[in-house]
Simulated assay, not measured.
Amino acid sequence: MPRFMGFVRMEEGGGAPPQALFDAMDKYIGEQAGTGHFLDGGGLFGTEDAVNFVVRKGETTRVDGPYAEAKEVVGGWALLQYDSLEEAIAGQQEFAELHAKYWPECEMVATLRQISDGAPEPTDA
């Protein structure tokens, strides 16, 4: 059964979501977990304590947050499992629509990506 990652990207510092969204999300996630579609997930803390390792031209550099130049950050994630891509897309749309309904002033992007079960093909560098 295909697995997917769902990501929520939004501007950092946009305020806390309303309780109505938390309540709707609890219900939705409970239903999705009950059907086996929601495997795991959660919100993420802000970038103030984030750590990135940037690899560029054979060098690794550590860059600590916060990141003033970041316009959007990943604020949450979910590990999902569906029978088909079409079902996964419908589930992610339903998730995004909860935000539109219960937090209409929020601007966010809900991204869905399928998880690869195989090793990537090597490339000649």
Rank of each mutant, 00 (worst) to 15 (best):
M1L: 13
P2L: 06
P2I: 03
M5S: 09
F7C: 05
F7W: 15
V8E: 00
R9G: 05
E11W: 09
A16K: 11
A16V: 13
A20S: 15
L21S: 05
D23E: 07
A24R: 09
K27Q: 12
G34F: 09
H37P: 07
L39S: 08
D40V: 04
G43D: 12
G43W: 14
L44V: 05
L44E: 00
T47W: 02
E48Y: 13
A50T: 11
V51K: 14
N52P: 09
E59N: 09
T61I: 02
R62Y: 13
Y67K: 07
E69K: 14
A70H: 12
V73Q: 08
V73A: 10
V74S: 14
D83G: 10
L85G: 09
E86C: 07
E87G: 06
A88Y: 04
I89H: 02
A90S: 09
G91F: 05
Q92L: 05
Q92K: 06
A96G: 06
A96P: 05
A96S: 09
L98E: 02
H99S: 06
Y102T: 06
W103Y: 04
P104N: 01
E107W: 04
V109L: 10
T111K: 15
L112C: 02
R113H: 02
G118N: 11
A119M: 11
E121D: 10
D124N: 14
A125I: 14
